[in-house]
């Protein structure tokens, strides 16, 4: 056989190495192999990002601009009509991409900063700090987070900052658990022990040995946590205790226009109006979930057999 010469040589052992490729090349190959669902998800996420970033340019009217006719029907001037006090629905939808998604994103980042940082510390320390943090998180997680959020909002009041802080802290408990559990699996690896034996400091071990190896699950978790935070904030806004008017926000828009749904049998378009912001929320979470699903499948090396 050609691949196995008779004389043994270490350099000629069979490996899983195909060819020299840059990271960019590898990423392109992975993308080319992605399923339609993941591609659809990526396109949707990209579209939301563009709409959110350029909202003032894209939106026909201002976020809080009030027109004389409330509940105006769908027509050329107001493509999706106006809401209960006469604001343009389309413009508010576009600004909503900036506000709702923006707040959810900031909250998720914050919760990763808190939960991820503490999780890493707990995983490396494994002594009393780990014990205290882990037990504390257990207790916090014993209360359903929506209920906990409601209690805290009733005390501190509903403002955007309070909302971000409260959800970020509650969600950080989940991030803490995940970071800790994946990091603990890496900390026991021999290459971490080798780095400790070499005399490396804690900073190096965290940044160079552990962090790169827990990134894939953390990235996937970021997507899932974002969906969860996004849905929680939308639910709170829908309940009227989240993002407050006049800020354009999809959750509150659903609530404000909900009554229109009763008119669906007379005017289907009017009936669809409350579903527009709801669909905007649903579409983004579906898209993120599709991408995360593919990413998890890809990085975990789970490859199903075709039948």
């Amino acid at each position: 056989m050609t691949q196995t010469p008779d004389t043994y040589s270490a350099a000629n052992e069979k490996t899983a190495f195909a060819a020299e490729r840059t990271r960019w090349d590898k990423a392109k190959i992975v993308l080319r192999k992605s399923p339609w669902s993941a591609r659809f998800g990526m396109v949707v996420i990209l579209a939301y990002m563009i709409v959110g970033l350029f909202a003032p340019i894209i939106a026909p009217y201002g976020e809080a601009e009030v027109f004389p006719v409330p509940f105006a029907p769908w027509d050329a001037t107001h493509i999706f009509g106006t809401d209960q006090i006469g604001r343009d629905i389309l413009s508010r939808l576009i600004y909503g991409a900036r506000n709702t998604v923006g707040i959810a994103l900031v909250t998720t980042f914050l919760s990763f900063l808190i939960g991820g940082g503490l999780g890493l510390v707990a995983a490396i320390n494994r002594s009393w700090i780990d014990q205290v943090l882990s037990r504390g998180v257990d207790v916090l997680m014993a209360i359903p987070s929506l209920i906990f959020a409601l209690v805290l909002l009733s005390i501190f009041g509903s403002s955007a900052v309070n909302l971000i802080m409260i959800i970020a802290v509650l969600d950080a408990t989940r991030v803490f658990r995940l970071t800790r559990s994946v990091a603990v699996n890496v900390v026991v690896m021999e290459y971490v022990e080798a780095a400790r034996l070499r005399g490396e400091g804690l900073g190096w071990i965290m940044r160079r040995e552990i962090l790169p190896n827990i990134m894939p699950p953390l990235v996937a978790e970021f997507g899932l946590r974002f969906c969860f935070v996004f849905l929680t904030i939308a639910a709170l806004s829908f309940l009227g205790v989240g993002i407050q008017p006049p800020t354009a926000d999809w959750g509150s828009m659903v609530r404000e226009n909900a009554s229109l749904i009763q008119f669906a049998q007379y005017d289907l378009k009017a009936g669809l109006t409350p579903l527009l912001p709801a669909s905007a929320i649903a579409l983004l979470t579906v898209a993120v979930n599709f991408v995360v699903d593919w990413f998890l499948h890809h990085t975990s090396g789970l490859k199903d057999t075709p039948k």
Partner: peptide
Amino acid sequence: MIYQMADTAMNPR
């Protein structure tokens, strides 16, 4: 030190 499992003794990244 050299370990039994070279797989886990080297940082895969």
